[in-house]
Each structure stands twice: as structure tokens, then as C-alpha cells.
Design a protein around this nucleic acid. Structure first.
Lengths: 158, 158
DNA sequence: AAAATATGTTTTGATTAGCGAATGAATTTT
DNA sequence: AAAATTCATTCGCTAATCAAAACATATTTT
């Protein structure tokens, strides 16, 4: 059995686990769960979006998106408005409070990672980027994909 | 804003997402969810374990471990037996069916990853291992602790 | 124009994970 | 023996998700 395969799998699981813990920290600190935060980020990045688009970008079903928007709306972080021309659509947009929340409580995963990543020497940054992309491609090769949406990269609105 | 930081974050999220999708595939194919499979793996690796140990190794509470064992037991994949000397403890052990299930339906994440990883040239394998470990360390640095249990590495018994 | 079809959102009904607190049973301490 | 401790389970609750059904509104056919 390839030793390095095991080692890398363990490292991968450790990353997944750290992510989970991060999510719990986030939940306790801000009252927002990861899916909720992701939706808020997506909405803020776009300015305004329909539930359908939110669902597509977040990679969940429309029903789930609606439920998440409900939570955010209840906390006053986003608003819902009926479309003008087409009244079937609903525009979800961030409120001031929602934008504040994003600034105040950025994804801990992102913050922790960013800080440390930027402290790495140049060659190591390059290595990490290359390796992560490689791993991502490898894993995506398995799941035929179906996640063209991804794009959570939007997270970096400035 | 460091461009590479963004790039690596996106790659990281892509990995997390691929993992989620893998979990869904697993669920549909085997009827087992990821947490359930992890428990089954942990139990099979140890031969037999108490719910308390399962909880520690899987990184969940005792109550959750009990619930997961319930599911596995209902499907006939593990058995429960009261301890001989100490009757407070319950030994959870895999059944033949449980072991079969592990052979037949190994974690898709692991399988996909392993196959491709092993196909990489030597230098690239080394790079990936180094980078994943680095990232894991970086993320764990954030959650200062609270996860002394971690050790999900147990999953890799041979 | 009326009917049929399509589209977008929400509701409803289930399942699963997970936590914390409470309970019950058995063992160890005092 | 009584008290404290240790394990496992049960209970009550929250959250995420999905599929299917229900609604509301547009668009296209007839």
C-alpha cells in the first residue's frame, strides 16, 4: 500500500475536519451557519439575485435556498422584493446589516487560511496553489462534476 | 489583494465541494451517509469499540455516536454486545455484512483520490503531500484546539 | 379570449446529523 | 452502605436537504 497515498488521505481528512470545526466556531460566534453565510456572500457579491440563481451558485436545491433565505431575512440580513416586470421572480438583496455582518465576521476558514498563506515564502505559496488545484482536479474527475456553479470565489468582494 | 491567496482559497473550496458531492454519491449508491461510513470504518479498523471511543475517534458527541450505531445496527452492519466484566459498556463490532460493505463500497473520495494520486509522478506526489500537510497545519492553527481528539487518521488502518 | 404549458417560488413532509440535558444502570470511592 | 463517577441511551430541539405538491404569474397554442 502506497504510504504516501495514506499520508495524503490523512492530510485531506484533517483539512476537512478543520473545516467542520471552523464552521462550528462560526456558528457560535455569529449565529450564522456555513450555508447561510455562503448564501449571504453570494447575494452580496451579486448585488441581488433570485432564489433560483442562489440555488445554482450555492449548489443546493431551490427549496433549500428558500429556507436559507428565510433565515437570513428573519435576521434582517437580506430583503425580498418582487420583480417589477416579472412578478414571479423575487429579488434577494443584502441589507446594510448584512453587509456589515460580512465585514465584521468574515469566514473564519478564509481568515485563518489567508493570514498564514500570505506569510509563506513565495515558493511555498506556489507549491500550495499548484497542489490544491491538482487535488481539486483529481477529486472532480471522480464526480463527473455537475458543479459548474461553484464560483464561491466571489467571496472576495472587496 | 494577493491573487494567489484567492486562487488557493477557490481551490480549497472546490475540494470541499467535491467532497460533498462524493458524499451524496455514496449515500445514493450504498444507502450509507458519510458519518455512518466513517463509524463503520472506525469500528472495522478496531475490531470492536465502545460508543465512547467511537465518538472520540469520529469527533462527535456520544449521543450522536449512539444514533449512528443505531442506523448501522438496523441495517445489520454492526452488532452490539454488553461487556462481560463491565456491563456498562457496549461493544460495537462489524458483522460479515458490514465488512463486505466496506470492501464493496469503499469511500468514493478515497478511491477516486487514491487512483489518481498513485498515477502521479514521484515529485508531484511529494509536492501534494507536503502541501496538504501544510494546509492542514495552517487550518488547525486557527482552531486552537478544542480538537484534541481529531485523530480521524485512524481511518487509515491498513 | 380561453386553455394549455412553462416558469419561479414557496410549502409540505421526510430523513439525517448533531448538541445538550436528563435518565438509567453499573462500578468505584469514601 | 451511601455517594460519586462513568457509560450508554433517550429526549427535545435546531438545521440542512431533498422531492413533490401547491401557487402565482407568464407565455404560447388553439
Amino acid at each position: 500500500m502506497e504510504n504516501r497515498t495514506q499520508t495524503s488521505l490523512i492530510a485531506l481528512r484533517r483539512i476537512l475536519r478543520a473545516t467542520e470545526l471552523n464552521a462550528r466556531t462560526l456558528a457560535r460566534a455569529t449565529g450564522l451557519t456555513t450555508p447561510q453565510l455562503i448564501v449571504l456572500e453570494i447575494v452580496a457579491a451579486a448585488g441581488r439575485l433570485t432564489p433560483k440563481d442562489i440555488a445554482a451558485r450555492a449548489g443546493v436545491g431551490q427549496a433549500t435556498a428558500t429556507a436559507l433565505v428565510d433565515k437570513l431575512e428573519a435576521r434582517g440580513l437580506v430583503t425580498r422584493t418582487r420583480g417589477e416586470q416579472d412578478r414571479r421572480v423575487v429579488w434577494v438583496a443584502p441589507t446594510e446589516a448584512g453587509l456589515e455582518m460580512l465585514k465584521a465576521a468574515p469566514d473564519p476558514l478564509q481568515r485563518t487560511f489567508s493570514e498564514q498563506f500570505e506569510a509563506l515564502p513565495d515558493w511555498e505559496q506556489a507549491m500550495v496553489v499548484a497542489a490544491l488545484e491538482k487535488v481539486g482536479a483529481m477529486l472532480n474527475a471522480g464526480t463527473i462534476d455537475a458543479s459548474p456553479l461553484l464560483d464561491v470565489g466571489a467571496v472576495d468582494r472587496k
